[in-house]
């Protein structure tokens, strides 16, 4: 058996490793190299320009605006999604009024868990098309329809959601929230279900209210999962390309009005596909990576706590 082992291992590994190295790792490595050149793309001619692309990036007002928008999303998106998902997960798992069973979820929890997850299986690109229609600036848009029905806005002057410089980014962020909450609800639910019921029952016996139970029992035991969710949402907040390029106004790949919803991903794609500034776009790719890595590491360090065994 031994003599065939290495042949077998090599035989099984060679194709996956080759494919993965060629189409994924190699382009990743090349990006670093190209980010130091003034490469235009089509021709193989390129000159080494050192850190010029990077210095140009940080004096490019559009890029800085895009970076700022990513940072805003980075702060608000994870906070909002995690809070809402935790709240729902708590309700669905332990928020019910305990009958004979003691600790359980509110009525219909199974239904909520299935329903809230639905957006997450749909493509972001298709949801972008749908939400563009929902945010339509006249009375035919669903949001305007709801607002007018509730008397919150004037039918004669409906709100042009995606053309409002101050609103557009938050309209996009809301779609991500809508998309993500169900997913994190399911994630947190799974974690909550692995907490032994006796702990809850003991807390209730000691006269702990549900709010207290949540903050003093559930949250500390869920900390690991919350951390993971934070890193994932942060990575999501660094992207947003599909939503912004489809939903928002702007010449190629959205970002409008007047760069008010610009993010790094849309600006990268515009520089690459529309302006042909490949080297510059690569430098942006490296900045996105750098930020993502720093962020994940910082999150994991800052929020590190003693792991609670149960």
């Amino acid at each position: 058996m031994q003599q065939g082992k290495y042949r077998f291992v090599t035989g099984f590994l060679i194709v996956p490793v080759a494919l993965y190295a060629v189409f994924m790792i190699w382009p990743y490595l090349q990006t670093f190299g190209y980010s130091f050149t003034d490469w235009q793309g089509q021709s193989q001619e390129m000159g080494f320009v050192g850190f010029d692309n990077y210095t140009a990036l940080f004096s490019d007002s559009v890029f800085l605006k895009a970076l700022w928008h990513n940072i805003l999303l980075l702060i608000f998106l994870p906070v909002a999604t995690i809070l809402l998902a935790l709240f729902f997960a708590y309700m669905v798992n332990v928020g019910g009024r305990g009958g004979s069973g003691g600790v359980r979820g509110v009525a219909g929890s199974g239904f909520y868990k299935i329903l809230f997850f639905v957006p997450h299986v749909l493509s972001i690109a298709i949801l972008a098309v749908l939400w563009r229609a929902i945010y339509r600036g006249d009375v035919a848009g669903l949001i305007n329809g709801v607002f007018i029905k509730l008397g919150l806005s004037d039918p004669a002057h409906p709100i042009e959601w995606l053309n409002e410089p101050d609103l557009v980014l938050w309209c996009v962020a809301f779609v991500l929230l809508w998309w993500g909450v169900g997913f994190y609800l399911v994630l947190f639910s799974a974690a909550m279900q692995s907490i032994p019921r006796e702990i809850y029952e003991a807390a209730l016996l000691d006269g702990s209210s549900r709010t207290q139970t949540f903050f003093k029992v559930t949250l500390p035991l869920l900390w690991d999962t919350v951390q993971t969710a934070w890193v994932y949402l942060a990575i999501l907040a660094m992207d947003c390309f599909a939503l912004i390029s489809v939903m928002t106004p702007g010449n190629s790949y959205g970002g409008g009005p007047d760069h008010n919803s610009e993010v790094m991903a849309t600006y990268l794609m515009r520089n690459f596909l529309a302006f042909g500034k490949s080297g510059y776009a690569c430098a942006m790719g490296v900045v996105i990576l750098g930020l993502t890595l720093v962020l994940s590491l910082v999150t994991l360090r800052i929020s590190r706590r003693e792991r609670i065994e149960y």
Partner: peptide
Amino acid sequence: FPVYLGLVPLYFL
């Protein structure tokens, strides 16, 4: 790694 890191070279590859 984010997809954007490799996108430009991937296209030319």
